[in-house]
Computed example of a mutant assay.
Amino acid sequence: MRIGELSRRTGIPARMLRYYEEQGLLQPARAANGYRAYDEADLFRAQQVRGLLDSGLTTEIIRAILPFLSRPDQIHLHPDCVTAEAAAMLRGEVDRIQARIDCLSRNRDALQAYLAVVQPAKSAAE
């Protein structure tokens, strides 16, 4: 399939698919005319990359772990395959994600506290 069809089937803009290729995250075949030629494996890989990016992973980390992903809907890294450098990157990413979770939790709690104060006053005024 060509890039337009892959884009339509995955919901990922063609521009992003080209970016994935530039970053080494997708490696489509090339037809004789130079057009990118994608297959079903590329479709699943593109969806996997999109999900990993949406979860907050960087392209650098995705590039490091992509060769070890076993299925399109699953991250399975065999312990023997993870280099010390990849493990350090993953630990750093876990710390970064946890910091984001902590910040989001604080923001959620602050908004809930604000609503608890404002909503009773709003209901009484109505």
Results as ranks from 00 to 15, higher is better:
residue 1 M to E: 13
residue 1 M to W: 11
residue 2 R to V: 11
residue 3 I to F: 09
residue 3 I to H: 11
residue 4 G to W: 13
residue 4 G to F: 12
residue 5 E to P: 08
residue 6 L to G: 04
residue 6 L to M: 04
residue 12 I to A: 06
residue 13 P to E: 11
residue 14 A to P: 12
residue 17 L to T: 10
residue 18 R to I: 10
residue 19 Y to G: 00
residue 19 Y to D: 03
residue 19 Y to K: 04
residue 19 Y to L: 10
residue 20 Y to N: 03
residue 20 Y to V: 02
residue 22 E to R: 13
residue 23 Q to N: 03
residue 24 G to H: 12
residue 24 G to A: 08
residue 24 G to N: 09
residue 25 L to Y: 06
residue 25 L to G: 07
residue 25 L to C: 07
residue 27 Q to A: 10
residue 27 Q to N: 05
residue 30 R to F: 12
residue 31 A to H: 05
residue 31 A to N: 02
residue 33 N to R: 11
residue 33 N to I: 11
residue 34 G to V: 13
residue 34 G to R: 10
residue 35 Y to D: 10
residue 36 R to C: 06
residue 37 A to N: 00
residue 37 A to H: 06
residue 38 Y to Q: 09
residue 38 Y to P: 10
residue 38 Y to M: 09
residue 39 D to M: 02
residue 39 D to T: 03
residue 39 D to E: 04
residue 42 D to T: 08
residue 43 L to S: 05
residue 43 L to M: 14
residue 43 L to Q: 14
residue 44 F to M: 13
residue 46 A to Y: 04
residue 47 Q to T: 04
residue 47 Q to C: 14
residue 49 V to Q: 12
residue 49 V to S: 09
residue 50 R to C: 04
residue 51 G to P: 00
residue 52 L to W: 03
residue 53 L to M: 14
residue 53 L to R: 15
residue 54 D to V: 01
residue 55 S to F: 14
residue 56 G to L: 13
residue 57 L to A: 13
residue 57 L to I: 08
residue 58 T to V: 04
residue 60 E to D: 09
residue 60 E to M: 04
residue 60 E to T: 05
residue 61 I to G: 08
residue 61 I to V: 15
residue 61 I to Y: 07
residue 62 I to W: 04
residue 62 I to Y: 00
residue 63 R to S: 07
residue 63 R to M: 02
residue 63 R to G: 07
residue 64 A to W: 01
residue 65 I to V: 15
residue 68 F to T: 07
residue 69 L to W: 00
residue 70 S to E: 13
residue 70 S to N: 11
residue 71 R to L: 07
residue 71 R to S: 08
residue 73 D to Q: 13
residue 75 I to V: 15
residue 77 L to N: 07
residue 78 H to A: 14
residue 79 P to D: 01
residue 80 D to G: 10
residue 82 V to Y: 09
residue 83 T to Y: 09
residue 84 A to K: 14
residue 85 E to Y: 08
residue 85 E to H: 12
residue 85 E to R: 12
residue 86 A to L: 15
residue 87 A to R: 15
residue 87 A to I: 06
residue 88 A to L: 14
residue 90 L to P: 01
residue 91 R to M: 07
residue 92 G to I: 02
residue 92 G to C: 06
residue 93 E to F: 06
residue 93 E to A: 13
residue 93 E to H: 10
residue 95 D to A: 15
residue 96 R to T: 04
residue 98 Q to E: 12
residue 101 I to K: 06
residue 101 I to D: 05
residue 101 I to N: 03
residue 102 D to F: 03
residue 103 C to T: 15
residue 103 C to V: 07
residue 105 S to V: 12
residue 106 R to F: 00
residue 107 N to K: 08
residue 107 N to Y: 02
residue 108 R to G: 01
residue 108 R to I: 02
residue 108 R to W: 01
residue 109 D to T: 13
residue 109 D to L: 10
residue 110 A to H: 05
residue 111 L to D: 00
residue 113 A to D: 00
residue 113 A to F: 00
residue 114 Y to A: 06
residue 114 Y to V: 01
residue 114 Y to L: 09
residue 115 L to Q: 09
residue 115 L to F: 02
residue 116 A to G: 05
residue 117 V to K: 12
residue 118 V to K: 15
residue 119 Q to V: 11
residue 120 P to T: 02
residue 122 K to Y: 01
residue 123 S to C: 10
residue 123 S to W: 08
residue 124 A to C: 06
residue 124 A to E: 14
residue 124 A to Q: 13
residue 124 A to F: 02
residue 125 A to R: 15
residue 125 A to W: 10
residue 126 E to Y: 04
residue 126 E to N: 10
